[in-house]
Amino acid sequence: MTGHNQTPEAAGVVADAYSGNWVDRLAPEITRPYLRLARADRPIGTWLLLLPCWWGLTLAMLSDGRAGWHDLWILIGCAIGAFLMRGAGCTWNDITDRHIDGSVARTASRPIPSGQVTVRGAVLWMVAQALVALGILFTFNTAAIALGVLSLLPVAVYPFAKRFTWWPQVFLGLAFNWGALLAWTAHAGRLEVPAVVLYFAGIAWTLFYDTIYAHQDAEDDALIGVKSTARLFGRDSPRWLRWFLAGAVSLMAVAIILAVPDGRMAALLVALCGPWAMGWHMHWQMRRLDLDDNARLLMLFRSNRDAGLLPVPFFAVALLL
C-alpha cells in the first residue's frame, strides 16, 4: 500500500490509473511496471481500440447476412489483439515520449520516466506483445493480414505527430480505428466502401474523445511545446466537439445505409439506432463538459467506452431481422 509520504513514482503507482485496479492489487510485483507500461491498469484504451473492430465485424455480417464460428473467433481474436497491440503501442509511445513524460505532472509517474523500466526492457516488452498479436493476425485471411501489417505505419508515426502538427488526434484516430477495416475484411475477405466510411466515423469519434482527454495536459503541453487539438481549439473546443459528434454519427449512419442490403428495412432501421444512441451519449458528455476540471475530463473520456459500445447491440439485433 502507498505510504502517506510516498510519491506515486516511489510507490510505482501511475497517476492517472484507476484507483484499486487489478494490477496494483493482484499482479505479481515484478510484473507491475510492465503491465503499467502496457496500460493494463487503464483498460479504456483497449476498449477504444477494440470497439471499431466490433463495429466492422457486426456491420460486415449484417451486410452479407452471414455469421459463422469463424466470426466468433474474429470477435475474440480482435479482443485479445486489441489488448496486446494497445499495450505494444503504448510501450512504443512511452519509449519515444520518455523525456516529455518526465516534464508533465500526469505522466511523470509512468514506468520509464520514473525509472521502473529501462528503455531496453521496454523495447523487449513491446516486441513480445507485438509478436503474440501477430500470431493471432495470421489466423485471419490474407487481405486482413496485409491490413494488419499496414496498421503498423500509423502506430509508428503517432507518437511523433504532436511534435509537427496541431492535429495529433487525427493520427491517433488513423491508428485506433484501423480495426474497423481489418475486422470487416477478416469476415468479408475484401475491403469495401462501408468499412472505409465506418473508419472515418471512428476517426471523428477519436477527435471528440481525445480532444477532451488532451485538455488535461494543455497547460503542461504549452510549457514544453507539445501540440494538440486541445491547445489549438482552446476555449472554442465545445464548438469543435459538436462538429466531431455530428461527423461521427452521420458517417456511421452512412456506413450502415451503404452496408445493409435493399429490402431489409427493419434491419436498417434497427441498425441506425446505433449511431443515434452513440450520439445521444456524446451529447450527454457535452452537457457535462468542464474544461477546467481535470477529474471531469478524465471521467468523460473514460465514458466513451459506453458510447462506443452502444451501436454494437443494435447491429447484433439487426442481424436477426
Results as ranks from 00 to 15, higher is better:
L84D: 04
R98M: 02
A188G: 08
V270G: 12
G77I: 02
C78Y: 00
D101E: 06
M85E: 02
A318E: 09
L310P: 03
P8G: 05
L198I: 11
L207P: 03
L49A: 02
R231P: 08
A88N: 06
W178F: 15
D210A: 05
A122W: 01
G20H: 09
T185A: 04
C78L: 03
L251G: 02
R287Y: 04
Y209V: 07
A38N: 03
V123E: 05
P311D: 07
M252D: 05
A255F: 10
A183M: 10
L75V: 04
D220F: 09
V132A: 01
V226M: 05
F200H: 04
V312C: 01
S63C: 03
P313M: 06
H99S: 09
C53I: 07
A143T: 14
A175I: 14
R25I: 12
A318Y: 13
T31C: 14
H99Q: 13
I80A: 11
W73L: 00
W280P: 00
H283I: 08
W205Y: 08
G135K: 01
L137D: 07
V193M: 15
A195F: 10
N177M: 01
T206I: 12
W125L: 02
P52S: 02
A88G: 12
N294W: 05
W92K: 06
A40P: 07
L272S: 09
R231N: 14
M85S: 06
S109V: 10
L50S: 03
L297Q: 06
I145W: 04
V254K: 00
A195W: 10
T139K: 01
